[in-house]
Nucleic acid binder design. Sequence first.
DNA 1: AATTTTATTGATTGACTAGTCAATCAAGCT
DNA 2: AGCTTGATTGACTAGTCAATCAATAAAATT
Lengths: 194, 194
Amino acid sequence: MPKLGVEPLRRAALVEATIGAIGEAGTLDVTVAKIARRAGMSSALAHHYFGGKEQIFLAAMRHTLTVYGAEVRGALAMAQGPEARIEAIVRASFSDSHFRREVIATWLNFYVLAQTSAQANRLLCLYQRRLRSNLRHGLRPLIGARAGPVADRLAALIDGFYLRHSLGIDQPDGAAAAEQVLRSLSLELAHGIH
Amino acid sequence: MPKLGVEPLRRAALVEATIGAIGEAGTLDVTVAKIARRAGMSSALAHHYFGGKEQIFLAAMRHTLTVYGAEVRGALAMAQGPEARIEAIVRASFSDSHFRREVIATWLNFYVLAQTSAQANRLLCLYQRRLRSNLRHGLRPLIGARAGPVADRLAALIDGFYLRHSLGIDQPDGAAAAEQVLRSLSLELAHGIH
DNA sequence: AATTTTATTGATTGACTAGTCAATCAAGCT
DNA sequence: AGCTTGATTGACTAGTCAATCAATAAAATT
């Protein structure tokens, strides 16, 4: 059975299983054994590849951030003009592939992890800084000096909609959430430069 | 030592200790024993009064929501006119007594708990509904039919600022956060009724 | 063929934790 | 003085979980 070079496959399976397990169990009682079973291997193997539970979570976190970042970058590449760029960021943030129950639960879990893990904290700060930076750069040519605070508001708005949907009352509707954020954006833009 | 009628005092001490412990340890490894020690009693007594860990957390949650609700109601009572009412809600949401590291961490913990505890979920949904309802009622006479979606955006904005500060990069500045939300509000109001 | 390397797991360990319980202590009531 | 009742805890139980390890099996290397 033991084929060679399965390490990347196993790591990927564990990362995916972690997100799935968090989405299902909601962060409490997500154990290494459950993750490993979901990925089709023993818990000992999970430890072998990642060294520990925190490392597994961090890997899942990095994966989520990477996928999200790639989606944003891809959307940005196709955007024409500053307003389209902001719209691309917002739409990517609420794309169907990310604005899903499991992923939302995973994000929430990351925020909790970030309270005790310095690495997790750093990763989330990085995400926040990048999001605001992307928004700010898109806003700058449109509203000049107001770009900073407006970017902060839009970023908070995005995070707020994620938090809201973590309760899982209404099933996530990414398109509607994106429209809400874009309506705030258009109000800010209508207000002009000042 | 055993004086009579200490039950309410003990319960209050445990609730306060829970919030303190969460703020310090960041939700992971917050054990009943730690909470009880922080409240100056044995873990057995904590179980005696609350019946279990989840009940202790739920009590802390109810307490936080109650205090927050009282603060909002107090601010609303003094507000003159619809715009002042909304401003009161926002300011109360970011008052120094609540926009603190421990309380923010506690809120985050509640959201996590709400993923597995139906009671916690119901409580948070209740909070969200009340917040939006309060905002909507204040907005109605100002912008009519737009009150609904605008209330949603303001509520998400408030939650978003809380989430952002849960990372604890910059120490919480409630006044600044309130100003940010109020700026969004004034933009929405400037846009008129339509 | 022998050796090394990688893959894999069952079994185990050690630490910790929620919850229980019997026993103790003190205050009020009769 | 004796009974009841609330307060309180130390000790214990039963369970869980992360992490370790020794052992096995198969590929790759020599």
